[in-house]
């Protein structure tokens, strides 16, 4: 999957999970930049991403993500 495609699909998932239509993503976006991105909504986000891209994540992948860039790279690798 192309990186641009990953980002556009990922942005749609983020907007849906965090209920914010004007949310934009960059590789450097972290949990601090998105209101309501906490340990619980992170799991909801991972589930939504798994469903949207048809991929699965392991325990340390879910816990080890530092920013959106790493998340997108991981999806790109798996999808």
């Amino acid at each position: 999957m192309e990186k641009a495609e990953v980002y556009s699909k990922l942005t749609a998932v983020f907007q849906d999970v965090f209920d914010e239509d004007d949310l934009t993503l960059t590789p450097h976006t972290t949990a601090d930049d998105v209101d309501g991105w906490d340990s619980l909504s992170h799991i909801r986000l991972v589930l939504a991403v798994s469903k949207a891209f048809g991929v699965k994540f392991s325990a340390s992948e879910i816990g080890g993500l530092k920013n959106v860039g790493e998340f997108a790279d991981l999806i790109e690798k798996k999808a």
């Binding site: 340990s39 325990a59 816990g63």
Partner: peptide, 13 residues
């Protein structure tokens, strides 16, 4: 968090 909380929340969700 990695080995109990996250998998548990995922299961519940």
């Amino acid at each position: 968090k990695l080995y109990l909380f996250n998998p548990l929340v995922m299961l519940l969700m």
